Simulated scan of single mutants.
Amino acid sequence: MIKKFLNAFGEYFLLMGKSIRNPQKMSVFWKHLMREINDLGVNSFGLVVFTSIFVGAVVAIQMYNNFEASAFPIPASFVGYATKAVLVLEFSPTIISLVLAGKVGSYIASSIGTMRVSEQIDALDIMGVNSPNFLILPKILASLIFNPLLIAMSISMGILGGYLAGEMTGNWTQDDYATGIQMYMPNLFYYYAFIKTLVFAFIIATVPSYFGYNVKGGSLEVGRASTQAVVWTMVFIIITELLLTQMILS
């Protein structure tokens, strides 16, 4: 089992080594990059906005209820600060990345896997095209470019969701919430959030690509590879989250 796992890691790094090279034809590469930005990033816009608004509202309400139940008086303005802190430190970079791992990861694994079982990748190799570079590099760059934008938008929409929750429930005023949002938060927290985002973006693009590229069989195996890709992408995100938290925040 361990030997099989190590062999898979070796194959993964070998595939990434072939992928991260100068494109053979820049005009084709830019065309594919723009398409991947649309497929992986722009098409995830609505899901990220919807999820972030509602979770931001839930986080704000939970913070307010916890503060109300506290034995010590806590100002209502801390609802805004606590909501911002939760969104920046954990929800937006990690939870949204896990959501994208399911949406984007399955798409990447199934699209590359379909090309593998239909022998399109073999055709590219026969024509002398570096197929890992041709197929995977645009996905890596698109994810690295657009995922930080999605996370920044998620933080903003989550804060908006907390504001809307206050307007609907009347538990805290606009001024209290705005005061909490403007409270000082260490810059390290923002660096931590976006460093995590870039690492997660690389994982989301490369792990499903590995599973899709190494599919053997037919359409049934493509479906299984997509499921495995999503599961392992989430596992690596969670493990990396622990390592980065220890390295950056400790």
Rank of each mutant, 00 (worst) to 15 (best):
S110P: 05
S118K: 12
A201M: 08
I37F: 05
L141N: 10
P75Q: 05
G102I: 04
G113A: 07
A60T: 02
K4M: 08
E36L: 09
F50L: 15
K3P: 05
M1I: 12
E68L: 15
L220N: 10
G166S: 00
R35K: 14
G17N: 10
F50C: 12
T179E: 15
F211A: 05
L149S: 03
G217H: 09
E221G: 15
M183L: 07
D125N: 10
L164A: 02
F91D: 01
V129F: 10
I159N: 02
L243T: 07
I61E: 03
A142Y: 01
K216C: 15
K84F: 12
M247R: 12
T83E: 06
I248P: 13
S143C: 10
A101S: 06
N43I: 01
V222F: 11
W172V: 00
K196S: 00
N187I: 13
P75L: 02
S77I: 05
A76P: 03
T179R: 11
D122V: 08
F45A: 06
G180Q: 12
Y81M: 15
F5H: 14
A101G: 01
V49F: 01
G217D: 00
Y81P: 13
W172Q: 08
S226E: 01
Y190R: 04
I140L: 05
P73G: 11
G10V: 15
M16S: 05
K84E: 06
I181K: 07
V235E: 00
F72W: 03
L242H: 13
N130I: 03
A109M: 05
N187K: 12
N130M: 07
E11N: 14
Q228S: 04
W232A: 13
E68K: 15
F45E: 04
V104A: 05
V207P: 01
S219G: 06
